[in-house]
Amino acid sequence: MPAHRIKINPIVLAAAPGIALLLIFFAIPLANLTVRSLTDPEFGLGNYKAVLGSQTYLRVGWRTIWISFLAMSGCVLIGTPVAYAIAHSKRRALVVATLAVLGLSFLTSSLIRAFAWMILFGAQGPIVAILNAAGLDVHTLLATQVAVVVGMIHFLLPIYALTAFAGFRNMPFDLVVAAEGLGASRWYALRTVYFPLALPSIINAGSLVFVIALGFFITPALLGGPSEMMLGQLIAISISKFGDFGFAAAAGVLLMVITLFLLSAVQWVSKAGQRQ
């Protein structure tokens, strides 16, 4: 027997580089940002008061949450069946093709995708042409909520579908088969057996895309108008035009706190639901 050495849990060891990375690239800048928000230009809560006292920021803040919620809902509605199909389909070619499409669109830059939508939704784009052919009098779809939410869903869908797929893949599909064997219809089995078990994966994937959506900047800037303005755009202006780091930091910290609050509420509700 070799001499006893200090035992390091191999999991901790494996996680160490990741933790160090998170610390350097997230924890420290985040702490830095928070300090900035409290000290720039002077010590105190002035920046927070300014953000919370601004009708514009409150309005745009809630709008940001609402638009992100819409985009997330779209991802859940469209992405869940896709994730289900690639997780359980027996047709390999279909699975590989779907994964390839998701992966490829995930790799395309958000800027290029937003510009593409700008043309598609624009006055000379096909969507306007179709709507007009159908008898609707539409000039352009730019600067509409539809354009922004569609553009955001387009960006977020691969992230949602791939995350949900990773959860769905490990689900015991046998249970659905067993339920069908006991006389349940496929739809009834999915609804009562599969869905409750899949819910945590849906919530996780949904929360992930919701958080990403909150930080959107390019998509609402190119596809939206003032009614779809998101917090990222206001923060960008306060930095690029005025160098207001403290104010921008406070707005960022507030958005983060609200996000964390919303996410913990969702987690709490979903846990409570599972216990029942």
Binding site: G122, A123, Q124, T140, L142, L222, G225, P226
Partner: peptide, 18 residues
């Protein structure tokens, strides 16, 4: 009014007809 965010959109949106 159609509002834009980036200078590049300035003539693009006029040329595109939006």
């Amino acid at each position: 009014i159609l509002w834009y965010d980036f200078g590049t959109q300035q003539v693009a949106l006029l040329q595109q007809g939006d």
